[in-house]
């Protein structure tokens, strides 16, 4: 293994002492080396960002159980998407993953707190809540040529006519399994990818976006 970065050199499980507002463990996405060294083009028409500090929960419940759904929605403060391959935006983002499965990208609230709330609210129902914060990385791809760059490695038609804002899809991007979501602004996409694939995917994105001018930032 190569040298540990200073941020990771402390004893495992021992938080840095005395610092208030230290990023949660979820603040580290593992892409620091990539974003620290990658060069942005001056006239970037594809903007690639990584969002730090996002927590993720996987929620499974029987969608026909209205009581279970309402219990979850009370905690979430927003409706859960029931239509396949759509997401709702409120305090959190709730993505449809399957007929009985959702991914919650937590907003301001800590995913662990939200997860406890959901677990309590769903006690007694046939349901499961799992914290996947450490396992996922959220990337944003936007800019005038974002769609063209993504289309190089995605078999879906990403034109807004077919993939409109509010729609999401689990699919392959550059052979990596991703959750791809069309955001409100035209040609802006959220990509949620397994952490272990995120470095590979960023390098794939860099390659796909380079002819269009690629810009990189950490959010």
């Amino acid at each position: 293994m190569s040298e540990a970065s200073p941020a990771l050199s402390g004893k495992e499980g021992v938080p840095p002492s005395g610092k208030v507002g230290t990023p949660s463990p979820h603040g580290r996405h593992g892409l620091e080396p990539f974003f620290a060294t990658v060069e942005s083009a001056p006239d970037a028409r594809v903007a690639i960002s990584v969002r730090t500090g996002r927590g993720f929960l996987n929620l499974r419940l029987n969608p026909h159980s209205r009581k279970a759904r309402e219990a979850a929605e009370r905690i979430l403060g927003q409706p859960m998407p029931l239509a396949a391959n759509t997401f709702t935006v409120g305090k959190h983002r709730v993505y449809w993953l399957g007929p009985d499965e959702w991914l919650i990208a937590a907003g301001e609230e800590r995913a662990s707190d939200l997860g406890s709330g959901l677990t309590d609210a769903l006690a007694g129902f046939h349901a499961a809540v799992n914290d996947l914060s450490g396992g996922n990385v959220e990337l944003l791809v936007g800019g005038a040529h974002a769609r063209t760059a993504l289309a190089k490695g995605c078999s879906l038609d990403l034109h807004p006519r077919e993939f409109a804002p509010g729609q999401c899809a689990q699919t392959s991007l550059g052979r990596a399994a991703v959750l791809l979501a069309a955001d409100g602004e035209p040609s802006t996409y959220t990509i949620i990818v397994r952490r272990s694939f995120s470095d590979y995917l960023c390098r794939w994105l860099e390659n796909a976006a380079r002819p269009h001018g690629a810009g990189f930032s950490v959010l």
Partner: peptide, 13 residues
């Protein structure tokens, strides 16, 4: 059309 989910819809609760 997302009608089927593999769950029976009768006794969801």
């Amino acid at each position: 059309t997302n009608a089927g989910t593999g769950y029976s819809s009768g006794n969801g609760d």
